[in-house]
């Protein structure tokens, strides 16, 4: 079985995120980069499927040079190899462009399962997996809290507003996962050492056969007009309960006309 996992490097979860004043894109230099948390769950799930059914796990990322750190982390966890799309002209790509680049490199490589996290912590769009599925003419099994592979069929539990749905499709298919699915492993020392020898295919826009006019800031389907930092929230009142905390809270709610 051939399994791909799409992972994204994002600013550290706890770092303050900012837009650049020159071109209104995310300032990726301002904070340490980490693997998007939900993508760790995707890597873990791919490794579990591999452990049960065999095959190989290939990491796919599009991002600047330093996203190589995230690739190495995924390889340290146990993935077999990686494809890293790097090109200055990717800068400013939106979801449509990202899905175009990812779908193009995935196409024709014979992947049976393509894993994603269900959301990136920086863009927070939750659209790239559906877009890649659309571009590849594949089924999407998204927001999975459980994945079962049986023969050529994949069944997931899709988290919904009211509970969950059981959804089934034949391979090849796109799968995105939520954090309930597993507990991602930490890379072991052995894993970290082994990762250094694993193959990473680094592709530029030209290498990947991509059309540069569909990529980057100038080609984006959306444009930021302006942005502004919201003034930090004025600190509220905090009281210590001396036996009347609930009453003070009721006074506050009454003053705000909630009761």
């Amino acid at each position: 079985m051939k399994i791909a996992v799409c992972v994204k490097q994002v600013p550290d979860t706890w770092a303050e995120k900012k837009l650049r004043s020159d071109d209104s894109t995310l300032d990726r230099e301002a904070a340490d980069g980490v693997m998007n948390e939900l993508d760790e769950y995707a890597v873990e799930e791919a490794l579990k499927v591999q452990a049960a059914h065999g095959g190989e796990v290939i990491i796919v990322t599009m991002g600047p040079e330093r996203a190589g750190e995230t690739v190495r982390k995924a390889l340290s966890m146990g993935a077999d190899g990686a494809i890293h799309l790097v090109d200055d002209a990717f800068h400013g790509s939106d979801a449509l462009a990202t899905s175009y680049a990812i779908a193009t490199v995935l196409a024709g490589r014979g992947f049976d399962l393509i894993f994603f996290g269900s959301e990136s912590t920086d863009a927070r769009m939750s659209v790239v997996p559906a877009m890649v599925a659309e571009r590849l003419g594949m089924a999407q099994l998204t927001f999975a809290q459980k994945v079962d592979v049986m023969g050529t069929s994949v069944t997931i539990q899709r988290v919904t507003d009211y509970g969950f749905e059981t959804v089934e499709a034949s391979m090849p298919t796109v799968v995105s996962v939520v954090e309930k699915i597993n507990e991602p492993r930490y890379p072991s020392f052995k894993g970290i050492m082994a990762a250094k020898k694993k193959p990473v295919e680094t592709l530029s826009i030209a290498d990947a056969g991509l059309d540069v006019s569909q990529l980057g800031l100038a080609a984006a389907w959306t444009v930021v007009e302006d942005f502004a930092a919201r003034p930090p929230k004025v600190a509220g009142t905090v009281v210590t309960d001396d036996g009347d905390g609930g009453i003070k809270l009721a006074d506050f709610l009454a003053a705000q006309k909630f009761i």
């Binding site: 303050e16 995120k17 900012k18 837009l19 209104s24 984006a220 389907w221 959306t222 444009v223 930021v224 007009e225 302006d226 942005f227 502004a228 930092a229 919201r230 930090p232």
Partner: peptide, 10 residues
């Protein structure tokens, strides 16, 4: 909530 962005589809 720290940043307000205005954007449009082109």
């Amino acid at each position: 909530g720290s940043t307000v962005v205005h954007s449009k589809v082109t």
